[in-house]
Protein backbone atom coordinates (compact mmCIF):
# COMPACT_ATOMS: atom_id res chain seq x y z
CA UNK A 1 0.00 0.00 0.00
CA UNK A 2 1.10 3.54 -0.72
CA UNK A 3 1.97 5.42 2.45
CA UNK A 4 2.46 8.95 1.04
CA UNK A 5 -1.19 9.82 1.33
CA UNK A 6 -3.07 10.46 4.58
CA UNK A 7 -5.17 7.35 5.26
CA UNK A 8 -8.54 9.12 5.22
CA UNK A 9 -7.94 10.48 1.71
CA UNK A 10 -7.29 6.94 0.49
CA UNK A 11 -10.16 5.25 2.24
CA UNK A 12 -12.88 7.49 0.81
CA UNK A 13 -12.42 6.18 -2.72
CA UNK A 14 -12.68 2.66 -4.04
CA UNK A 15 -9.49 0.67 -4.46
CA UNK A 16 -10.11 0.30 -8.18
CA UNK A 17 -12.24 2.60 -10.28
CA UNK A 18 -12.57 1.84 -13.99
CA UNK A 19 -14.18 4.41 -16.27
CA UNK A 20 -15.17 3.81 -19.90
CA UNK A 21 -12.50 1.20 -20.46
CA UNK A 22 -12.17 0.20 -24.11
CA UNK A 23 -9.80 -2.39 -25.51
CA UNK A 24 -10.02 -2.79 -29.26
CA UNK A 25 -7.91 -5.35 -31.09
CA UNK A 26 -6.91 -5.00 -34.73
CA UNK A 27 -7.37 -8.21 -36.75
CA UNK A 28 -7.36 -8.97 -40.50
CA UNK A 29 -11.14 -9.31 -40.29
CA UNK A 30 -11.63 -5.91 -38.70
CA UNK A 31 -11.47 -4.32 -35.26
CA UNK A 32 -12.53 -6.62 -32.42
CA UNK A 33 -14.27 -4.47 -29.81
CA UNK A 34 -13.46 -6.94 -27.03
CA UNK A 35 -13.99 -4.46 -24.20
CA UNK A 36 -16.17 -1.58 -25.24
CA UNK A 37 -16.92 0.90 -22.51
CA UNK A 38 -16.79 -0.81 -19.12
CA UNK A 39 -17.11 1.16 -15.89
CA UNK A 40 -16.86 -0.56 -12.54
CA UNK A 41 -15.53 -0.21 -9.01
CA UNK A 42 -13.93 -2.57 -6.55
CA UNK A 43 -13.95 -1.53 -2.92
CA UNK A 44 -11.26 -2.45 -0.43
CA UNK A 45 -11.70 -5.89 1.17
CA UNK A 46 -14.43 -6.74 -1.32
CA UNK A 47 -14.87 -9.47 -3.86
CA UNK A 48 -16.34 -8.59 -7.26
CA UNK A 49 -17.58 -11.38 -9.51
CA UNK A 50 -17.50 -10.96 -13.30
CA UNK A 51 -19.69 -13.38 -15.26
CA UNK A 52 -20.65 -13.81 -18.89
CA UNK A 53 -20.55 -16.26 -21.78
CA UNK A 54 -17.38 -17.27 -23.56
CA UNK A 55 -16.17 -14.38 -25.71
CA UNK A 56 -17.94 -11.66 -23.72
CA UNK A 57 -14.62 -9.94 -22.99
CA UNK A 58 -13.88 -11.00 -19.40
CA UNK A 59 -10.28 -12.06 -19.97
CA UNK A 60 -9.38 -9.14 -22.22
CA UNK A 61 -10.74 -6.78 -19.57
CA UNK A 62 -8.82 -8.51 -16.78
CA UNK A 63 -5.63 -8.42 -18.80
CA UNK A 64 -6.16 -4.76 -19.62
CA UNK A 65 -6.37 -4.06 -15.87
CA UNK A 66 -3.00 -5.83 -15.56
CA UNK A 67 -1.50 -3.85 -18.44
CA UNK A 68 -1.26 -6.99 -20.55
CA UNK A 69 -2.67 -6.13 -23.93
CA UNK A 70 -2.74 -8.31 -27.01
CA UNK A 71 -0.63 -7.18 -29.97
CA UNK A 72 -2.19 -4.56 -32.27
CA UNK A 73 -4.62 -3.44 -29.60
CA UNK A 74 -5.40 -0.08 -28.08
CA UNK A 75 -6.95 0.79 -24.73
CA UNK A 76 -8.66 3.96 -23.68
CA UNK A 77 -10.53 5.15 -20.63
CA UNK A 78 -9.35 5.41 -17.04
CA UNK A 79 -8.17 2.79 -14.58
CA UNK A 80 -7.75 4.46 -11.19
CA UNK A 81 -6.01 2.24 -8.67
CA UNK A 82 -5.55 3.75 -5.22
CA UNK A 83 -6.28 7.10 -6.79
CA UNK A 84 -3.70 6.91 -9.61
CA UNK A 85 -4.60 6.43 -13.29
CA UNK A 86 -2.64 3.36 -14.28
CA UNK A 87 -2.97 4.02 -18.00
CA UNK A 88 -1.04 7.30 -17.68
CA UNK A 89 1.76 6.19 -15.30
CA UNK A 90 5.36 5.84 -16.40
CA UNK A 91 6.59 2.32 -17.13
CA UNK A 92 8.54 2.24 -13.89
CA UNK A 93 5.52 3.29 -11.84
CA UNK A 94 3.35 0.77 -13.68
CA UNK A 95 5.73 -2.06 -12.82
CA UNK A 96 5.37 -1.10 -9.15
CA UNK A 97 1.66 -1.78 -9.40
CA UNK A 98 1.29 -4.64 -11.84
CA UNK A 99 2.46 -7.94 -10.40
CA UNK A 100 2.97 -6.42 -6.98
CA UNK A 101 -0.11 -4.50 -5.86
CA UNK A 102 -2.32 -6.15 -8.46
CA UNK A 103 -1.69 -9.85 -9.11
CA UNK A 104 -3.47 -12.21 -11.44
CA UNK A 105 -4.25 -15.90 -11.72
CA UNK A 106 -4.54 -16.61 -15.44
CA UNK A 107 -7.20 -18.67 -17.18
CA UNK A 108 -4.89 -20.63 -19.50
CA UNK A 109 -4.15 -23.85 -17.56
CA UNK A 110 -0.82 -24.50 -19.26
CA UNK A 111 0.60 -21.07 -18.67
CA UNK A 112 1.00 -20.27 -15.00
CA UNK A 113 3.66 -22.78 -13.90
CA UNK A 114 6.96 -23.45 -15.61
CA UNK A 115 7.21 -27.25 -15.91
CA UNK A 116 11.02 -27.42 -15.55
CA UNK A 117 11.41 -25.13 -12.53
CA UNK A 118 10.91 -26.30 -8.95
CA UNK A 119 8.04 -24.86 -6.89
CA UNK A 120 10.47 -23.01 -4.61
CA UNK A 121 11.99 -20.86 -7.33
CA UNK A 122 8.64 -20.09 -8.90
CA UNK A 123 7.33 -18.95 -5.52
CA UNK A 124 10.33 -16.89 -4.45
CA UNK A 125 11.28 -15.26 -7.77
CA UNK A 126 8.65 -12.52 -7.58
CA UNK A 127 9.25 -11.56 -3.95
CA UNK A 128 13.02 -11.48 -4.38
CA UNK A 129 12.77 -9.26 -7.44
CA UNK A 130 9.80 -7.10 -6.46
CA UNK A 131 10.25 -6.89 -2.69
CA UNK A 132 14.04 -7.36 -2.50
CA UNK A 133 13.70 -10.20 0.00
CA UNK A 134 16.86 -12.28 0.66
CA UNK A 135 17.17 -15.96 -0.19
CA UNK A 136 16.56 -17.56 3.18
CA UNK A 137 13.78 -15.18 4.14
CA UNK A 138 12.11 -15.81 0.78
CA UNK A 139 12.26 -19.53 1.46
CA UNK A 140 10.66 -19.07 4.85
CA UNK A 141 7.92 -16.93 3.33
CA UNK A 142 7.37 -19.55 0.61
CA UNK A 143 6.78 -22.21 3.25
CA UNK A 144 4.31 -19.90 4.98
CA UNK A 145 2.49 -19.20 1.72
CA UNK A 146 2.13 -22.89 0.88
CA UNK A 147 0.81 -23.51 4.37
CA UNK A 148 -1.65 -20.61 3.95
CA UNK A 149 -3.04 -22.05 0.71
CA UNK A 150 -3.39 -25.50 2.27
CA UNK A 151 -0.52 -27.43 0.69
CA UNK A 152 0.45 -30.19 3.14
CA UNK A 153 4.13 -30.81 3.92
CA UNK A 154 5.26 -27.47 2.40
CA UNK A 155 9.04 -27.95 2.95
CA UNK A 156 8.98 -31.07 0.81
CA UNK A 157 6.68 -29.56 -1.82
CA UNK A 158 9.12 -26.70 -2.42
CA UNK A 159 11.49 -29.20 -4.03
CA UNK A 160 8.79 -30.61 -6.34
CA UNK A 161 8.31 -29.91 -10.02
CA UNK A 162 4.76 -28.98 -11.09
CA UNK A 163 4.05 -32.38 -12.67
CA UNK A 164 4.62 -34.02 -9.29
CA UNK A 165 1.56 -32.22 -7.91
CA UNK A 166 -2.14 -32.95 -8.40
CA UNK A 167 -4.25 -30.49 -10.39
CA UNK A 168 -5.74 -28.99 -7.25
CA UNK A 169 -2.32 -28.68 -5.60
CA UNK A 170 -0.93 -26.95 -8.71
CA UNK A 171 -3.72 -24.39 -8.59
CA UNK A 172 -2.95 -23.76 -4.90
CA UNK A 173 0.66 -23.11 -5.84
CA UNK A 174 -0.45 -20.73 -8.60
CA UNK A 175 -2.52 -18.82 -6.05
CA UNK A 176 0.40 -18.78 -3.59
CA UNK A 177 2.62 -17.25 -6.30
CA UNK A 178 0.02 -14.54 -6.94
CA UNK A 179 -0.10 -13.81 -3.19
CA UNK A 180 3.69 -13.73 -2.78
CA UNK A 181 4.04 -9.96 -3.23
CA UNK A 182 1.10 -9.26 -0.91
CA UNK A 183 -1.18 -7.69 -3.51
CA UNK A 184 -4.04 -5.39 -2.60
CA UNK A 185 -6.07 -6.77 -5.49
CA UNK A 186 -6.09 -10.30 -6.85
CA UNK A 187 -7.68 -10.98 -10.23
CA UNK A 188 -8.59 -14.66 -10.62
CA UNK A 189 -9.66 -15.46 -14.21
CA UNK A 190 -11.60 -18.75 -14.28
CA UNK A 191 -9.42 -20.18 -11.50
CA UNK A 192 -11.40 -23.43 -11.30
CA UNK A 193 -12.64 -24.11 -14.81
CA UNK A 194 -10.52 -27.18 -15.54
CA UNK A 195 -10.98 -28.66 -12.06
CA UNK A 196 -13.33 -31.25 -10.61
CA UNK A 197 -16.25 -30.05 -8.55
CA UNK A 198 -14.67 -31.12 -5.24
CA UNK A 199 -11.36 -29.43 -6.08
CA UNK A 200 -13.19 -26.37 -7.41
CA UNK A 201 -14.91 -26.19 -4.07
CA UNK A 202 -11.60 -26.27 -2.20
CA UNK A 203 -10.09 -23.56 -4.39
CA UNK A 204 -13.14 -21.29 -4.13
CA UNK A 205 -13.14 -21.66 -0.33
CA UNK A 206 -9.42 -20.89 -0.33
CA UNK A 207 -9.81 -17.72 -2.42
CA UNK A 208 -12.58 -16.39 -0.23
CA UNK A 209 -10.62 -17.22 2.94
CA UNK A 210 -7.39 -15.50 1.89
CA UNK A 211 -9.35 -12.54 0.53
CA UNK A 212 -10.91 -12.06 3.96
CA UNK A 213 -7.87 -12.92 6.08
CA UNK A 214 -5.60 -10.61 4.12
CA UNK A 215 -8.19 -7.82 3.77
CA UNK A 216 -7.50 -8.03 0.07
CA UNK A 217 -9.82 -7.23 -2.81
CA UNK A 218 -10.68 -9.91 -5.33
CA UNK A 219 -12.04 -9.97 -8.87
CA UNK A 220 -13.37 -13.47 -9.50
CA UNK A 221 -14.09 -14.16 -13.17
CA UNK A 222 -16.20 -17.11 -14.28
CA UNK A 223 -18.63 -18.15 -17.00
CA UNK A 224 -20.53 -20.00 -14.25
CA UNK A 225 -22.95 -17.80 -12.33
CA UNK A 226 -23.05 -20.22 -9.42
CA UNK A 227 -19.30 -19.93 -8.92
CA UNK A 228 -19.54 -16.23 -8.13
CA UNK A 229 -22.94 -16.28 -6.39
CA UNK A 230 -21.97 -17.32 -2.88
CA UNK A 231 -18.42 -16.00 -2.96
CA UNK A 232 -18.60 -12.35 -3.91
CA UNK A 233 -20.02 -9.14 -2.49
CA UNK A 234 -20.79 -7.53 -5.81
CA UNK A 235 -21.22 -8.89 -9.30
CA UNK A 236 -20.95 -7.56 -12.87
CA UNK A 237 -22.62 -9.41 -15.76
CA UNK A 238 -20.74 -8.87 -19.00
CA UNK A 239 -22.08 -9.19 -22.52
CA UNK A 240 -20.34 -8.37 -25.81
CA UNK A 241 -17.75 -6.08 -24.24
CA UNK A 242 -20.19 -4.19 -22.01
CA UNK A 243 -21.71 -4.59 -18.59
CA UNK A 244 -25.35 -5.62 -18.72
CA UNK A 245 -26.02 -5.56 -14.99
CA UNK A 246 -24.06 -4.74 -11.84
CA UNK A 247 -24.95 -4.64 -8.20
CA UNK A 248 -24.70 -6.37 -4.88
CA UNK A 249 -24.50 -10.11 -5.46
CA UNK A 250 -27.59 -10.66 -3.38
CA UNK A 251 -29.72 -8.23 -5.40
CA UNK A 252 -28.52 -9.43 -8.76
CA UNK A 253 -29.18 -13.08 -7.94
CA UNK A 254 -32.34 -12.59 -5.90
CA UNK A 255 -33.87 -10.05 -8.26
CA UNK A 256 -32.10 -10.05 -11.63
CA UNK A 257 -33.51 -7.35 -13.88
CA UNK A 258 -31.55 -7.56 -17.11
CA UNK A 259 -33.05 -9.96 -19.63
CA UNK A 260 -29.65 -11.50 -20.29
CA UNK A 261 -28.93 -12.23 -16.62
CA UNK A 262 -32.31 -13.88 -16.28
CA UNK A 263 -31.83 -15.93 -19.44
CA UNK A 264 -28.42 -17.13 -18.23
CA UNK A 265 -29.84 -18.18 -14.87
CA UNK A 266 -32.72 -20.01 -16.52
CA UNK A 267 -30.39 -21.92 -18.85
CA UNK A 268 -28.24 -23.20 -15.97
CA UNK A 269 -29.39 -26.68 -14.89
CA UNK A 270 -29.89 -26.48 -11.14
CA UNK A 271 -29.53 -29.49 -8.85
CA UNK A 272 -33.31 -29.52 -8.48
CA UNK A 273 -34.22 -29.08 -12.15
CA UNK A 274 -37.18 -31.28 -13.02
CA UNK A 275 -35.76 -34.05 -15.14
CA UNK A 276 -36.56 -34.54 -18.81
CA UNK A 277 -38.02 -31.06 -18.96
CA UNK A 278 -36.40 -28.78 -21.53
CA UNK A 279 -34.02 -26.13 -20.28
CA UNK A 280 -34.86 -22.59 -21.24
CA UNK A 281 -32.61 -21.72 -24.13
CA UNK A 282 -30.86 -18.57 -25.13
CA UNK A 283 -31.14 -18.84 -28.91
CA UNK A 284 -28.24 -17.88 -31.16
CA UNK A 285 -24.85 -16.71 -30.02
CA UNK A 286 -22.86 -13.58 -29.17
CA UNK A 287 -22.68 -10.97 -31.94
CA UNK A 288 -19.52 -10.80 -34.05
CA UNK A 289 -17.24 -8.42 -32.08
CA UNK A 290 -16.08 -6.79 -35.32
CA UNK A 291 -19.66 -5.97 -36.37
CA UNK A 292 -21.59 -5.11 -33.25
CA UNK A 293 -25.21 -4.06 -33.74
CA UNK A 294 -26.36 -0.47 -33.28
CA UNK A 295 -28.87 -0.91 -30.49
CA UNK A 296 -28.87 -3.39 -27.60
CA UNK A 297 -26.23 -6.03 -28.26
CA UNK A 298 -28.46 -8.75 -26.83
CA UNK A 299 -31.50 -7.79 -28.94
CA UNK A 300 -31.12 -10.56 -31.55
CA UNK A 301 -31.38 -13.20 -28.80
CA UNK A 302 -33.77 -11.44 -26.44
CA UNK A 303 -37.34 -12.66 -26.05
CA UNK A 304 -38.37 -9.23 -24.77
CA UNK A 305 -36.79 -7.01 -27.40
CA UNK A 306 -38.95 -4.00 -28.19
CA UNK A 307 -38.60 -1.89 -31.30
CA UNK A 308 -36.53 0.76 -29.54
CA UNK A 309 -34.04 -1.94 -28.48
CA UNK A 310 -32.87 -2.23 -32.07
CA UNK A 311 -31.66 1.35 -32.37
CA UNK A 312 -31.19 2.67 -28.83
CA UNK A 313 -28.04 1.48 -27.10
CA UNK A 314 -29.05 1.14 -23.43
CA UNK A 315 -26.74 2.50 -20.73
CA UNK A 316 -26.38 1.38 -17.11
CA UNK A 317 -29.15 3.03 -15.10
CA UNK A 318 -29.89 2.58 -11.40
CA UNK A 319 -32.76 0.28 -10.41
CA UNK A 320 -31.87 -0.02 -6.73
CA UNK A 321 -29.50 1.26 -4.05
CA UNK A 322 -26.58 -0.73 -5.46
CA UNK A 323 -28.03 -2.18 -8.63
CA UNK A 324 -27.64 -0.94 -12.23
CA UNK A 325 -29.09 -2.38 -15.41
CA UNK A 326 -28.49 -1.54 -19.07
CA UNK A 327 -31.83 -2.58 -20.53
CA UNK A 328 -34.63 -0.60 -22.15
CA UNK A 329 -37.24 -3.11 -21.07
CA UNK A 330 -36.01 -4.67 -17.82
CA UNK A 331 -37.84 -7.44 -16.02
CA UNK A 332 -39.99 -6.51 -13.06
CA UNK A 333 -38.44 -7.32 -9.71
CA UNK A 334 -39.58 -10.92 -9.21
CA UNK A 335 -41.79 -11.80 -6.29
CA UNK A 336 -40.63 -15.42 -5.94
CA UNK A 337 -37.00 -15.32 -7.04
CA UNK A 338 -36.12 -18.88 -6.07
CA UNK A 339 -38.33 -20.36 -8.78
CA UNK A 340 -36.35 -18.54 -11.46
CA UNK A 341 -33.54 -20.96 -12.09
CA UNK A 342 -35.51 -24.17 -11.79
CA UNK A 343 -39.25 -24.02 -11.42
CA UNK A 344 -41.53 -26.80 -10.36
CA UNK A 345 -41.25 -29.35 -7.60
CA UNK A 346 -38.11 -28.75 -5.52
CA UNK A 347 -37.22 -32.42 -5.75
CA UNK A 348 -37.90 -32.38 -9.46
CA UNK A 349 -40.10 -35.46 -9.60
Amino acid sequence: MSDERPPEAVSTQPLLRVRHLRTHIGTPRGTVRAVDGVSLEVERDQALGVVGESGSGKSVMARALMGLLPPRSASSGEVFFQGRDLLSLSRKEQSEVWGKQIAMVFQDPGRPLNPVVRVERQLTEGMRRQLGVGRSEARGRAVGLLREVGVPDPERRLRNYPHELSGGMRQRVVIAIALACEPDLLIADEPTTALDVTVQRQILDLLRRVQRERSMSLILISHDLAVVAGRTDRVAVMYAGRLAETGSTREVFDAPRHRYTRALLAATPALDHKRHTPLRLIPGSLPDPTELPEGCRFAARCAHAAEECLDLDPYLAPVGADHHVACANPAAAPTAPTTLASGGDPLGR
Binding site: T198, L204, A229, G230, R231, L265, A341
Partner: peptide
Protein backbone atom coordinates in the same frame (compact mmCIF):
# COMPACT_ATOMS: atom_id res chain seq x y z
CA UNK B 1 -22.14 -30.49 -1.21
CA UNK B 2 -19.38 -29.22 -3.51
CA UNK B 3 -21.69 -27.91 -6.23
CA UNK B 4 -21.75 -24.12 -5.99
CA UNK B 5 -25.30 -22.84 -5.51
CA UNK B 6 -26.79 -19.83 -7.28
CA UNK B 7 -28.23 -18.76 -3.93
CA UNK B 8 -26.01 -15.86 -2.77
CA UNK B 9 -26.62 -16.64 0.91
Amino acid sequence: DSVPLTDPD
